[in-house]
Design a protein around this nucleic acid. Sequence first.
RNA 1: GGUAGUAUAGCCAAGUGGUAAGGCAACGGUCUGCAAAACCGUCAUCGCCGGUUCGACUCCGGUUACUACCUCCA
Length: 469
Amino acid sequence: MIQVFNTLTREKEVFKSITPGKINMYVCGPTVYNYIHIGNARSAIAFDTVRRYFEYRGYDVNYVSNFTDVDDKIINRAQEEGISEMAVANKYADAFHEDTLPLNIKPATVRSRATEVIPEIIAFVQDLVNEGYAYEVEGDVYFRAKKFKGYGILAHQDLAEMEANAAGRLDDEETARKEDPIDFAVWKSQENPDVISWPSPWGNGRPGWHIECSVMAQKYLSDTIDIHGGGIDLAFPHHTNEIAQSEAHTGQRFVNYWMHNGFVNVDNEKMSKSLGNFTTLHDLLANYDDPMAIRYLLATTQYRRPINYAEETLAQARAELDRIRTGYRNLEFRLTSAISGHDNVIDQEVNRQQQAFETAMDDDFNAQNAIAAVFELVTLANTYAESDTVKQSSGNQLLETLQMLMQIFGVDIVETQTSLNPEQKQLFDDRANARKSHDFQKSDQLRDELNAQGIIVEDTPQGQRWHKA
RNA sequence: GGUAGUAUAGCCAAGUGGUAAGGCAACGGUCUGCAAAACCGUCAUCGCCGGUUCGACUCCGGUUACUACCUCCA
């Protein structure tokens, strides 16, 4: 039984998919006008981890996400750089794929772009107009928020309050056009031939921000989907408006479980584009040599909690991950001289911790409790590796479990296989011989030499071993 | 102003009506020719003030601080 915190009800609810064994989920992707920042990465990782856990639990997950590839920011960027809107979108969509690869984020089952569903968007908007949920004003089409019963409940916003706030904020021109200040655009007029636009029944224009997600979720999934995810800031207005559009359109419930990830903060302050205090993943990866540590940090914090990002927290995450890697390596090496068979005590403990992991993750993806079970396995691996007799089967099972559980977080703890070059191999063997003949001066010198080449040599009761620094 | 969230050791962070998981760092010890790694051990009374209770960090009331959302934003 998996429990999921549903933003709509603000409660943990027992998760039940519409179709047994299958999950349809939609996650809001980035606007591709720049490299994604750590906050975007966190969102992608949070839902990738959710997806991986559901898959581990045997679900077939249909994961749909989008790229918003046409909006004001992209248009501005295109004009600044003197290139087309699509060139901007393509560049940063490619960068997204490139940068998320080292973070081990699984590709979406379907990754759609807004501009790929323009006909569907226009048809959707037309229907809203026909049904009286939307109206046209000089080429713009607005959604009548008030006509949709229950508008704002996702974010628990009070309509009257919103109205008061919206009235004071919007520029007069746009407010004047709308019937009501809280109405929002589903289609935006664009008659300037230098700016990208599509012909529509209301003249040339482009989609409003929220409409693409409603359209894609319906097109690639269904009228009612199991899970819709995104950053907590999207609850209002984006998801609020999606609900209004979709439910007005289909008459069906749009989403069963709304999941929202918490923010990444910098120095305890929100990281945002307007504050300019964001770090792009692109830059971070360029200056950091352990992408798995980034994944570890972002995946092992419960998805709804804020993460305070700093070099120090990343370093701490890396230290934790190193402990897991080392434990894995310790037992892996020990297994080279293990005997066949298995130990019931070990097997049972491995099983127990795996269950603890599942219990934790079942509880709204409580990653911190899950990782605690992983550390129990690490300690078990280390103590087992030090025992006099190690059985192949149990040792292997322990390692496989450790690897599998970390893979749910998208963290690969098995270092890629490398080998010593012939010279290093010679130094390594010479050192073993020097130690055998108690020539410690020489053996220490050889160890230093290898160390200088990034090869760490360690002695164990089973002989010396090495790994990369 | 409205609506939410958070406050647990030097740091990160679980948790629950019955005397505080896990990790990082630190310190002590074991192991080691020396290291490294590992292992063992030490390290908090849970923002503040009241209340309920046999008993609260956990429930209730109040209070303080920080953060977020209220049409740029993951």
